[in-house]
Design a protein around this nucleic acid. Structure first.
Lengths: 351, 351
DNA sequence: CTCTATTGCGCAATCGATTGTGCACTGTAT
DNA sequence: ATACAGTGCACAATCGATTGCGCAATAGAG
């Protein structure tokens, strides 16, 4: 059936020759516009059959050039190797393919130069839309997209010039803080009786909202939070390890309530915790914003907030479909995960 | 500087007009072949300046159409949301961009139909090469790639028609099994004194090699392994949970030595472990092929094997660069990670 | 001063699919 | 028989960059 080994790939012209029809007819048949072009059903079926036989595959670059679109949709993330972003990526990928688009996920490594380069590259490939998930300089990217007339949607961070889909970080942090306060053994005295939030940076909108909720929730419990209880050490495990170690030294133990602001920071915290005796945790309630299945099974209970990545991406696609281009903000509720629970799996590993 | 808002994007023809040069000259200047085409340095600089001013961005579809290449490189993985594959993805992405290629990672969800569709799609976009990491039907994909004249390299699974880069699964499993045997408390009696391997499927080459090593290493210790000690329950957490629960019932506790074949299976195992008292683990040595930072900090020690994803991808790119197209197999050593260790981070989160 | 090299660059075809337009033919109403 | 509407399809331009080829101008040789 297949033709042996032409070095050149088969084109609509090859099919035109074999079928006796013109290239435009073949094109119309293969892209589904044939009835609109008043091609007879017989012709259409004949051509389709030949295309199948010789194993025709369309050249998307040719189509894209003509149509000034590519059928690809892009998303930028800080890194792939992160539970949250890879989960976003999985949903992005599945939903893109479900609507016939080719997903392209690129990582920026949190570098403003890289994220600019990447977006420009994606624009050169004429992607049909861009999801911006994690950007150090959203304004810069927004301007580039606008100039290039590229639809873009912010995911997990708010943008000024286009719609955003966010986790309700305030709600999540509020749930987590309340839970931690409720579960705190309350035996700790002095500086150890305080609550601490560790990890993240002020540049990050999510972190800002979580801190607000942390403050307000503690305020409801008539506790005043001072600056030293909010430890902004970034996301890197190493920094977090250093920070928690220092705190431990300063207050002579773990605080009654510890809110870790990201999984990567929690990795660092854990590497310090590993040096402590089991008894060190008995007076503390520990929580983490973001979910990891194993983190729920440590020696001590860890409360976690799980963002609904699938819903975030689903909403983002809905905004695309409905041609929403204002700078509206759409929030998705996260979920509080109790210790020793395996959360419902993402699409990936249902097998 | 920027022109206000042309609906159409600027092309080399726009630059040709403004500079007084021809489109072919502009093209040569912008793609770097100008000295080969004997364009003067003055002209080149003049054109480059104009291109910068009006914010020209090349149309990669036009270039790709003409050159029958795209400047994109593809990789297929089962899922994004998996520590191993997302780590592969991160290295793939970084190294692609380092050599000026646009990375495209697509997930197959372990479906033969999907993986076929995806590869065909990528071929339609004229990707320059494809890394196949995780495929249920590698032969099928190999044939498609060969027919399309597409360079492909297998990563983490061996292919028959192209080079493969693999973790030395035998070595990894041997290291892990030896470690587990050395660390087994040896107090368990009867059926609980045996060693068990749980997770994975026989269809998977990695699993096969790991089982071989498990068997041989136990053989060295003069232990015969029967079929029931190798529990092939797939990768899904749920299946693994069921399997370990059943085993626990059958042998009246945990085995002296438990080799879990993947992180996802280990998630399922953990969800069962969470129902057990801490004392249940005292007679067992537990290990997992694949690494998770939190899994190292559970109530009991967990020995893990960490695959060197960066090296796997680096080698794969080297094979591309050196035009290796035979079906040679290249192995990369994994690393045994002791409990309570944070392994060296991947590129992603160096911050 | 003529003749060949070399320099510098433009012309036009090309990649493969899409799409606006128009031609030929059939059927039908007048 | 003439006109008119529909049917079914082909022609050729087009998207934007690349590239083989060739022409003009200048430089240097004799």
């Amino acid at each position: 059936m297949q033709q042996p080994m032409q070095n050149r790939k088969t084109t609509i012209y090859d099919i035109a020759q074999r079928s006796g029809a013109s290239a435009s007819t073949v094109s119309a048949v293969l892209n589904g516009t044939w009835s609109g072009r008043r091609i007879s059903k017989d012709t259409a079926e004949h051509i389709s059959k030949i295309a199948l036989e010789i194993g025709y595959a369309i050249n998307m670059q040719a189509r894209g050039l003509r149509q000034a679109r590519s059928g690809m949709i892009g998303m930028i993330v800080p890194t792939h190797d992160n539970r949250f972003f890879s989960s976003l990526g999985q949903s992005f990928d599945s939903l893109a393919r479900a609507r016939g688009l080719c997903p392209v996920i690129a990582s920026t490594l949190r570098s403003p130069q890289e994220e600019k380069r990447i977006v420009e590259t994606l624009i050169s490939y004429a992607i049909d839309a861009l999801f911006i998930a994690g950007a150090t300089d959203p304004e810069q990217l927004g301007k580039i997209c606008t100039d290039a007339n590229l639809k873009h949607i912010y995911v997990d961070l708010p943008g000024k010039d286009a719609p955003s889909v966010l986790t309700d970080n305030f709600l999540g942090a509020q749930m987590l803080t309340r839970k931690l306060l409720a579960e705190t053994p309350c035996r700790a005295k002095g500086p150890r009786a305080k609550s601490y939030l560790i990890g993240g940076t002020i540049n990050d909108h999510a972190t800002v909202r979580r801190i607000e909720a942390f403050r307000q929730t503690l305020g409801e419990a008539r506790v005043v939070v001072d600056e030293r209880q909010i430890i902004q050490c970034g996301y890197a495990p190493r920094q977090a390890a250093k920070a928690i170690s220092q705190l431990y030294g300063e207050i002579g133990g773990l605080p009654a309530c510890l809110f870790v602001n990201s999984l990567t920071a929690f990795e660092g915290v854990m590497s310090f915790f590993a040096t402590l005796p089991a008894s060190a945790f008995s007076d503390s309630a520990i929580g983490c914003f973001d979910y990891d299945p194993f983190a729920g099974f440590l020696q001590f209970p860890v409360y976690m907030v799980r963002q609904d990545t699938h819903q975030l991406i689903t909403k983002a696609y809905e905004l695309l479909d409905h041609d929403v281009f204002d700078s509206s903000v759409h929030e998705v509720d996260p979920e509080l995960i109790e210790p020793r629970t395996i959360a419902i799996e993402n699409l990936g590993e249902l097998g």
